[in-house]
Amino acid sequence: MAEPQFFPLATSLDFGEVAAISGAPLPDGVDPARRVTGAAALEHAGANDVAYMDNAKYVDALAGTAAGLCLVSPRFAGRVPAGTTALVSPAPYHAFANILARLFPTALKPGSVFGSQGVAPGAFVHATARLEDNVTVDPGAVVGPGAEIGSGTVIASHAVIGPQVRIGRDCAIGSGSTIQAALIGNRVILHPGVRIGQDGFGFAMSPKGHMKVPQIGRVIIQDDVEIGANSCIDRGASRDTVIGEGTKIDNLVQIGHNCVIGRHCVIVSQVGIAGSSTLEDFVVLGGQVGLAGHLTVGMGAQVAAQSGVAGDIPRGARYGGYPAQPALNWARESALLKMLVAKRSKISGGSEG
Rank of each mutant, 00 (worst) to 15 (best):
P4S: 12
S12G: 14
G16T: 13
G23T: 02
A24W: 01
T37N: 10
G38N: 05
A41K: 13
H44D: 15
A47H: 12
A47Y: 02
V50K: 06
N55Y: 03
P74K: 02
V80I: 07
P81D: 04
S89T: 08
F96R: 10
A101V: 09
L108Y: 09
F114G: 06
V119Y: 00
A127N: 07
L131Y: 02
P145D: 00
E148R: 14
V154F: 07
A156C: 15
V165G: 00
I167V: 11
G176W: 00
L190E: 10
D199G: 03
G200E: 02
G202N: 12
P207A: 07
M211K: 15
I221G: 04
D223P: 05
D224Q: 04
E226M: 08
S238H: 12
K248Y: 07
L252G: 12
V253P: 10
V253W: 01
V260I: 14
C265G: 11
G275E: 00
F282E: 15
G286W: 01
Q288D: 03
L295E: 02
G298N: 11
A304P: 11
Q306K: 14
A310Y: 10
G320D: 07
P326R: 11
N329F: 10
R332F: 02
S334H: 05
M339F: 11
M339I: 15
R344E: 15
G353E: 13
